[in-house]
């Protein structure tokens, strides 16, 4: 094998093995860092793992937002109109957080409550996070919701 071809072979081998290792590590990192999504119904029926970081999507149930008068602690229910999950959170809620609005919360289940580390509401009022749409579709309440919005 001439030196030029040998060098090229080595480079290609290096590239392929480097890329292989990189992709392997990336996939491993991915499997460690994904957050699974659950609906309120799945959580209420005990299908979600506790103590693992997960996401829940649904609507903020009307009249359920309770604020602590001394601190930034807040609690509210997230519903797919079938089941509700009590969510607690400490911090500043996003601007579009409101009763009756779609919301995605990220956190862990702790003794029957969902302790949120992050609350996401979207920046466009007409936009519904796909997770929330999915939760409502699974509970069969999506059409009801859409009808409700038009009123």
């Amino acid at each position: 094998m001439n030196p030029k071809r040998k060098q090229r072979m080595l480079i290609i081998l290096g590239l392929v093995s480097g890329l292989g290792v990189a992709v392997g590590l990336v996939m491993y990192a991915l499997s460690q860092n994904i957050n699974l999504f659950f609906t309120p119904t799945q959580i209420a029926t005990g299908q979600a793992p506790s103590a693992q970081l997960i996401r829940v999507g649904g609507m903020v149930a009307d009249g359920t937002v309770d604020r602590d008068p001394q601190s930034l602690k807040v609690a509210f229910d997230v519903t797919d109109f079938d089941h509700q999950v009590r969510v607690t959170y400490e911090g500043i809620l996003p601007d579009l957080f409101r009763e009756g609005q779609g919301v995605v919360v990220q956190g862990r289940i702790n003794q029957g409550q969902f302790v949120a580390s992050e609350v996401l509401a979207k920046h466009d009022e007409n936009y519904m996070p796909p997770e929330v749409t999915e939760a409502l579709r699974q509970s069969g309440k999506l059409d009801q919701m859409k009808g409700g919005q038009q009123q």
Partner: peptide
């Protein structure tokens, strides 16, 4: 990809991207 193969809804957050 996960959704397409029926693995349910997942999200990948900043910890992954920072780690890589």
């Amino acid at each position: 990809l996960v959704d397409a193969v029926g693995g349910g809804k997942v999200s990948v957050g900043p910890p992954f991207f920072n780690a890589v």
